[in-house]
């Protein structure tokens, strides 16, 4: 990144980064709050159809309009946020839960057969475009939110495994690890007690990024009909269903589209901001 010459570049940048962190966190919080609120209350029942009130443009009764079944778009976006966030959280959870231990193990046995096995398996998963494999998985096991979660989750595993291994490798060379080894701690204990805590910042940042990718992937899968099945609202399916109506009911595409864009933007801004805040080393490298 090249910025114009400035007497105090670090300060400017920090201020800008902090601002993006705040903006990103705010955006993300709005959608999280909407998702949480939808458990308790939505303006209208998303399962109840009201054909007589179909295709109403945004207005006082329906802030974001109604769809072709007369469902309230705002309510659907709120419940859709729940679907997106739930899928992304679990998918990132799978990635962290499997990827981090694998990465730690590979780093601990660096150069050994276990390291090779884990990393080559990761390469294998990495070699396929994630969405294609996700489509394959849902096509084989049937469409649905659970399979979408699995499909997206599997692709988070190598991301976290690689990240963990790379960072852990450099840590293994550090003096305090040497001290721990001299003290007689085994590789597992060192990984858990010394390596992992030092990776936490990195993982949080990466988790935020993967979270936004997860939301995009969920939207993509449900757009092609392989995500959450009707009547569960999902942003991707709202987009898909709005396609033939764009010309006379543009809000049907605009609203879920904006929801996806703003959430992903918010999460990315937050991820960038967090990285700069938590990981000064990375910032220096840029």
């Amino acid at each position: 990144m090249t910025l114009p010459a400035d007497p105090r570049p670090g300060l400017w940048r920090q201020a800008f980064r902090a601002r993006s962190l705040i903006l990103g966190a705010l955006l993300s919080l709005v959608f999280l709050a909407a998702a949480l609120l939808s458990f308790l209350w939505t303006p209208y029942d998303v399962a109840a159809l009201d054909i007589a009130a179909k295709l109403r443009p945004p207005g006082a009764a329906h802030w974001l309009g109604t769809d072709h079944f007369g469902r309230d778009v705002l309510s659907m976006i709120m419940v859709g946020a729940r679907t997106s966030i739930a899928v992304a959280v679990v998918a990132v959870g799978i990635g962290v839960g499997l990827g981090v231990p694998l990465g730690l193990a590979a780093a601990a046995r660096r150069g050994g057969w276990l390291d090779e096995l884990i990393m080559r398996a990761n390469d294998l998963v990495f070699a396929f475009p994630s969405l294609v494999i996700a489509i394959l998985i849902t096509a084989v096991f049937g469409p649905g939110a659970v399979n979408a979660i699995l499909a997206i989750g599997i692709f988070n595993v190598p991301v976290f495994a690689r990240l963990t291994r790379g960072a852990a490798l450099s840590l293994w060379k550090r003096d305090f690890i040497l001290a721990a080894r001299v003290a007689g701690k085994g590789a597992t204990r060192i990984s858990a007690e010394h390596i992992l805590p030092n990776l936490a910042n990195l993982l949080i940042v990466q988790g935020t990024i993967q979270f936004s990718l997860g939301i995009l992937a969920e939207a993509g899968l449900s757009y092609v009909g392989l995500g959450a099945q009707p009547p569960t609202p999902s942003w991707g399916r709202m987009l898909a269903e709005s396609q033939t109506m764009i010309s006379f009911a543009p809000w049907l595409a605009l609203m879920p589209g904006m929801a996806i864009v703003l959430t992903v933007l918010g999460l990315n801004l937050m991820g960038d901001g967090l990285r700069d805040l938590l990981d000064p080393r990375l910032r220096r490298q840029r």
């Binding site: 109840a48 159809l49 079944f69 049937g142 009909g225 009707p230 009547p231």
Partner: peptide, 22 residues
């Protein structure tokens, strides 16, 4: 596809749940 969603909603109103599969 659309009729199915409407029927699912109408059946739910009388207490019948449906598992939609496209």
């Amino acid at each position: 596809r659309r009729g199915g969603e409407i029927i699912a909603s109408q059946l739910r109103a009388v207490g019948i749940e449906t598992r939609i599969e496209n």
